[in-house]
Amino acid sequence: MRDFRWPPPPDAGPRTYGPGPSAPRSGRPALPEPETELVATPHGVRLERLVTGSGDPVTVFAHGLGSGIATTRPLGSAVHGRKVFFQFRGHGRSDAPTGPWSYLDLARDLRAIADLGSATRAVGVSLGAGALCRLLVESPERFDRLVFFLPAVLDQPRPPAVRERLSNLLDAIEAGDASALAEEVSYELPPAVRNTPPGWAYLRQRLDQLLRDGLAPALATLPEQVPVRDRAALARVTVPALVIGCVADDLHPVPVAEQLAAALPNATLHVYDKPGVLWTERADLRTRISDFLNG
C-alpha cells in the first residue's frame, strides 16, 4: 500500500535552499553532488568521474543500477588513499552509446576507470558488483582487494518482478512523471524512513538527479542478463574479498551474496539482519568496509 504522497506535505521536507549541509538532520545515504569531470576511455565512451582523497592505495567504486556517484560516496568516507567514483554508461553525464548493452560493456567501463586511476582495489554495489565479477572472470588478479555490497545477480537472471521495477522507473523518467518516479524511488527507503524529513530530502535529491540526467533506455535489457555464465570461473580470484548482503531485500537476495562468497576462495561474508543498511547500519557498514580495505 502506498504510504506517502507526492509532492511532500509542506512540513515534511528540508527548509533550506540549495545543496544544503553535507548531512541531513538524521542522515541519508547520499551526499551533496560535487563537481565532476568527463573523461575519455580507450573504448570510446566518455564517463563521468569524481576523484577524492590523495595518495595510495587507490580504490574504484562502481554504483548500482539507476544510482550513481552520490550513492556510493558514503561507502568510501573512511577509506584511505584516493577514491575514484564514476557513472556507468547511461547514467548521469556519462555517454549512452547505442545499445543493447551487456555486462561486458559495463566491465569495460569499470576497467577503463580503474586503469586511468591506477586503482588497485574495487568496491562494487549491486549492478557494479556484477560488472566487477565480469571483469574478474577475464582478469582475476586485476585488484588486490575486493568489496561486493548487495550483489544482485551472478549466473542466474533476476526475477520478473525486478525487471518490472526497472521498467516502471524508466517509464516514469521518460514521461517526466515526478509522482510515479517518487513511487519507485521510495522503495529504496526503509518503511520507517518514509514520510520523514530525511526521507523526503533523499527523494527530492534522487528525483532532481534522475529527472535532470535521466537513464538510458538501453539499461532495460540488463536485468535479463547475467554477469558470468558459470560462477565457478571466479575460483581463480584468490585475493581477499568482502561480500555484504542483507535479509529481506528483494532486489539483492541473500542467496546471491552467499553464492558469490562461496565462489571466491578468499572471501568473507557478512549479512545484515534487516534491509536499508545505508540507513539502519550506516556507521557499521562504513567501518566494516574501511577496516577491510585499510587493513
Rank of each mutant, 00 (worst) to 15 (best):
L234R: 00
D291C: 02
P151R: 04
P253N: 05
V147K: 07
G92H: 07
S67C: 13
D95C: 01
D249T: 07
V147C: 00
T16D: 15
L106W: 09
A122H: 06
A129F: 09
Y202F: 15
G245N: 01
W101E: 00
L181R: 10
P74V: 10
A232G: 08
I173D: 01
G176N: 08
L203N: 02
C133K: 09
A152I: 00
G176T: 09
V185R: 11
P160E: 04
D115T: 14
P10T: 12
L169R: 14
V254Q: 03
A192I: 13
P265F: 00
S22T: 13
D11E: 15
R145D: 03
G117L: 02
F149R: 08
G27P: 11
S118L: 12
I113H: 06
R89L: 04
N266Y: 05
S26N: 13
D11N: 14
R231I: 04
A78S: 14
T71M: 01
L215W: 06
G130M: 07
V153G: 02
F4T: 07
A192P: 09
S167T: 15
G18D: 08
S54Y: 01
S167F: 11
R89P: 05
P100T: 02
R108F: 03
P140M: 07
P265V: 09
Q259W: 11
E33K: 04
L166S: 01
D171I: 08
S94F: 08
E174D: 13
T72M: 15
L38A: 03
Q205D: 15
S102P: 06
L210H: 09
L116A: 13
A283L: 11
P240W: 12
E35F: 07
R49Q: 14
T280Y: 12
L170W: 11
H252E: 06
D208M: 07
P223Q: 04
T36Q: 09
S77V: 15
T221M: 06
T41H: 08
L251N: 14
A182L: 10
T41E: 02
T59P: 05
L154Q: 05
D250W: 15
D11I: 01
T268K: 13
H252P: 02
H270M: 05
A152E: 01
I244F: 03
R165Y: 14
R165G: 01
D250V: 13
L264P: 01
F85C: 04
A78P: 00
A263V: 05
G64Y: 07
A122G: 02
G68N: 07
G117K: 08
S139F: 13
L116M: 10
L269N: 03
P7L: 01
T221S: 14
A235D: 12
R121Q: 15
F143V: 00
L104F: 13
E183A: 10
V39T: 12
R212V: 01
V185Y: 03
V193L: 10
P223E: 02
I113E: 05
Y17K: 12
A248T: 10
D3N: 14
I289A: 06
A180Q: 12
A182G: 05
R158T: 01
R288V: 02
R229A: 12
V228Q: 04
E37Q: 15
V185M: 13
A201W: 11
V228A: 00
